[in-house]
Design a binder for these strands. Structure first.
Lengths: 210, 210
DNA sequence: GTCTATAGAAGGATAGAC
DNA sequence: GTCTATCCTTCTATAGAC
């Protein structure tokens, strides 16, 4: 009667492989990581490695699509309520941009983009678990602000996309290209402020428009 | 007295190598392309290949940084004059987005992002010859519209970045991840229209604001 | 300069012992 | 399940003939 269907899943060796392969693939990409290197970093033999993952392709796809699923945690992106809609939007934008600028998030984005030709399912997994979730959550937040009369946005989800697009320009674009390694807080705040200003001038309702 | 410093540059074999390697690297990335494949596609022997390029790293870096320099041609991005600023901005946005969505532009962006860890200079070359040029040209255009009283934008270059960020969201993001392979003209137009609407509501001067 | 042929190394994957 | 040792393929790079 005892069910132990996923007992394998918790094998320590398997966990070691997943952990080590995750770090290596995310940091260096598919081509630059050998199965030897994964085995060495995980402290297992190559035979053990292949006992758990049938091929390098499969290992890579598992690891990265798993990383896409984890790295979201958009739950706590939404800001604390404030009397000023601009403050809330700034807080929200700041959290999103800081999340995107994390080394790990940047690295995952890079790897997925770089290998999305060879592994199309990764592009899909990344989009569904990252941008698409953000679009829904953020869009719903905008819709609530509409309902409360604090914003006047015709298409909330499209507007969420546009706002995120403004966050992902300049600073983030350079970071994703390996330029501007660690942007200052001031630069981040300035980028967020630019997006918030544009957004509120376009869609703010009430006295904040000017 | 005759100068022939770049006679080598025009060697037909060398041109064949550059052309073939360009296609292969842009299409498949660094790791997935072998020197054998380059030699075969160029119709030369590997010895000839190595006579022109000392290593695979060097060949890759030359080819891709060259591709970054070429693929810009932002010259003809600027729109024809029109009586309506919205029409001009739409035309401009449409040209930018269509340029970015070209297979070749997408592929170069992907390769550079993917290999920017291993080849940091490529990220720089891409940014300097792509986004940075666009930012300057587009920013100057906005400044001219300011001067003509058709727009009222406090920081033209930053605004140019924001506008381009809005173009690079949704549709383009999915395309760069390998989803939504060939977007329809209607989708492209809708994306541009969204960005133009936001931009003009925020920074339009005159009656177009509402 | 160009080719054919190959050296030398490294990577992916597996056989067999425990 | 795990390891050691190894096979086979593929890759980068070069030597030597033309």
């Amino acid at each position: 009667m005892s069910i132990q269907s996923d007992a394998e899943t918790e094998s320590p060796k398997r966990q070691a492989i997943i952990s080590a392969a995750g770090e290596l693939f995310v940091a260096h990409g598919y081509g630059a990581v050998s199965m030897d290197a994964v085995a060495r970093a995980a402290g297992v033999s190559k035979a053990t490695l292949y006992a758990h993952f049938a091929s390098k392709d499969l290992l890579f796809a598992s690891i990265i699509s798993q990383a896409c699923r984890e790295s979201i945690a958009v739950a706590d992106i939404l800001p604390d309520p404030s009397s000023d809609i601009g403050d809330e939007l700034s807080a929200l934008g700041g959290r999103i941009l800081r999340f995107l600028l994390q080394d790990r998030a940047l690295a995952i984005h890079r790897v997925v983009i770089g290998e999305s030709i060879r592994f199309p399912e990764l592009g899909r997994a990344f989009y569904d678990n990252g941008p698409a979730v953000l679009r829904r959550v953020f869009g719903a937040w905008i819709a609530r602000q509409n309902a409360a009369g604090r914003l006047d946005v015709p298409e909330p989800e499209r507007a969420a996309d546009l706002f995120c697009g403004m966050l992902r320009t300049g600073l983030y674009l350079r970071a994703s290209l390996g330029i501007a390694p660690s942007p200052s807080e001031a630069e981040i705040d300035a980028t967020v402020a630019g997006a918030v200003t544009m957004f509120l001038r376009a869609y703010g309702s009430g006295p904040a428009t000017d």
